[in-house]
């Protein structure tokens, strides 16, 4: 028993570990709540693109802002919002399909970011922190930024919940109800952008998408009610953050990767065992045995 308590409290002796845990939980919750809409609206590609496209903004914050948390945050936020507007403008022009527009902006911006960072001598280390996050390096002011902006994102989603659900489920209904559908859609993109920037230090640019969609997708498999899905996703996101950080501490694994791997493991569990919908559900032992025999024909002969 004492060992278990020691196992849990041991890392908490380090202030950076406590800050990291708080950040991971906050980010897990905010990403999961926003991610619910990303999953339901099929915006995964947009989320992935946006998180990569903010790289030049981070580079500017890094090269000219001294690389402080605040500088990275504000430059990242500015770039994310400009990028989502840019994608909107190109796809609304109707000349190019939306996913193509997203792809062009995403790759171009990412290349620009790498080009900018590559001009610095400590290129590899700097790039790695931005790409894969450094949750254990979160400062107190960084925590405040996450709390304030993450809290604002969740508050706006709760206040506009029913309108956001309507435009996600049936945009035509939204229009006949005289909702400001374009405004709401743009607002949702800005909320996704803010969430990405807020979460940046935890998992980094490259793994951001997992925090947005994997907990929400797991929750989607476990319930058929939207409020429940959102709450479950938040729980899974927070849990992944905590378990991932302990895994990182004891296993010596990169923290961002550890968090994402826990998310993925939880998704696999949901995929296999979700009541009524899981892959193994409705599989009888008989069917499983047949499946096993088909996969390993040699086993049956022994």
């Amino acid at each position: 028993m004492e060992q278990i308590i020691e196992f849990i409290t041991g890392p908490l002796a380090y202030p950076f570990m406590v800050r990291g845990l708080i950040a991971a939980v906050l980010v897990g919750v905010v990403c999961a709540v926003v991610g619910t809409f990303v999953v339901l609206r099929g915006m995964a590609f947009f989320g992935d693109a946006l998180s990569h496209a903010i790289l030049p903004g981070l580079a500017v914050g890094y090269l000219y802002g001294g690389g402080t948390t605040d500088a990275l945050f504000w430059w990242g936020l500015l770039t994310a919002i400009l990028t989502s507007i840019g994608i909107g403008v190109i796809s609304e022009s109707g000349e190019i399909k939306e996913d193509t527009a997203i792809g062009i902006v995403f790759a171009g911006m990412f290349a620009l970011g790498i080009a900018m960072i590559s001009t610095v001598r400590s290129y590899a280390v700097d790039l790695a922190h931005i790409l894969f996050g450094n949750v254990l390096g979160v400062s107190v002011s960084g925590l405040w930024l996450i709390t304030i902006f993450g809290g604002a994102v969740i508050l706006i989603i709760l206040l506009l919940y029913k309108e956001l659900v309507v435009i996600s489920f049936d945009p035509v209904l939204g229009a006949t109800l005289r909702l400001r559908t374009t405004l709401l859609h743009n607002l949702l993109m800005i909320l996704i952008a803010t969430t990405i920037v807020v979460s940046l230090q935890t998992v980094g640019v490259a793994l951001m998408l997992a925090m947005l969609i994997t907990p929400a997708a797991s929750a989607y498999l476990l319930t058929r009610r939207l409020p429940t899905m959102m709450a479950l996703a938040a729980l899974i996101g927070a849990l992944s953050g905590v378990v991932g950080l302990y895994l990182s501490y004891y296993g010596g694994i990169a923290s961002g990767a550890a968090i994402v791997l826990v998310c993925t493991a939880l998704f696999l569990l949901a995929f296999l065992f979700a009541p009524g919908r899981g892959w193994l559900w409705g599989m009888s032992w008989e069917k499983l045995r047949h499946a096993a025999l088909r996969s390993f024909p040699t086993a049956s002969r022994q």
Partner: peptide
């Protein structure tokens, strides 16, 4: 992930 009740309630938005 919405129920029949939820969808009809959307009409009241």
């Amino acid at each position: 992930p919405v129920t029949v009740f939820d969808v009809v309630m959307m009409g009241r938005t």
